[in-house]
Design a protein around this nucleic acid. Structure first.
Length: 154
DNA sequence: GCCAACGTTGGC
DNA sequence: GCCAACGTTGGC
């Protein structure tokens, strides 16, 4: 079992949207490191912290779970898509994405500044300077700690 | 909207 | 294979 953090801009796709849809294909990732995590490392039932980036404020909004292994991301072939990549084609798809399913919205949203206040979490990749990955691994102990934080008022 | 930090591209 | 130029991310 592995643990992950996946970022999404709430204006484009929020955890409330995921709750409504139940499942979402995580298309649009155009970073190799993030893609490789999805293709090589994510397993069905892996747990996911759903992060709202560029939010007011940014932070962790809830939980999701991997429910389908990586499949070809066809938005890369679609000229009208904002995720269009002219170097991708059905013969050489280049991009793949997993499907995630809704688990829960946190009773208390955990902002980035809340996370920074926790000494225990100081080594999280998310909190490292200049770190911009939209999908990143999370340690079990950090995942568990964050779930615990979500249950109490900050 | 700004801008630091980082990733990608392409010329050489 | 280097690296400058450019594009993107994402916090603020």
């Amino acid at each position: 079992m592995s643990y992950w953090l996946m970022k999404s801009e709430p204006y484009s796709y929020s955890i409330q949207d995921l709750k409504r849809d139940k499942r979402a294909f995580w298309d649009g990732v155009r970073n190799y490191q993030a893609r490789n995590f999805m293709i090589q490392d994510m397993k069905i039932r892996d747990k996911v912290l759903f992060y709202h980036s560029n939010g007011k404020p940014s932070g962790i909004a809830g939980l999701a779970r991997i429910c389908k292994k990586a499949e070809v991301d066809k938005t890369a072939f679609d000229k009208k898509s904002k995720y269009y990549d002219q170097k991708a084609s059905p013969e050489n798809p280049r991009w793949k994405a997993v499907t995630v399913e809704f688990v829960q919205i946190f009773p208390h949203f955990i902002s980035l500044s809340d996370l920074r206040k926790e000494k225990t979490l100081k080594d999280m990749l998310l909190l490292k300077k200049g770190q911009r990955l939209s999908i990143m691994p999370v340690k079990k102990k950090d995942y568990d700690y964050i779930v615990k934080m979500s249950k109490k008022q900050m």
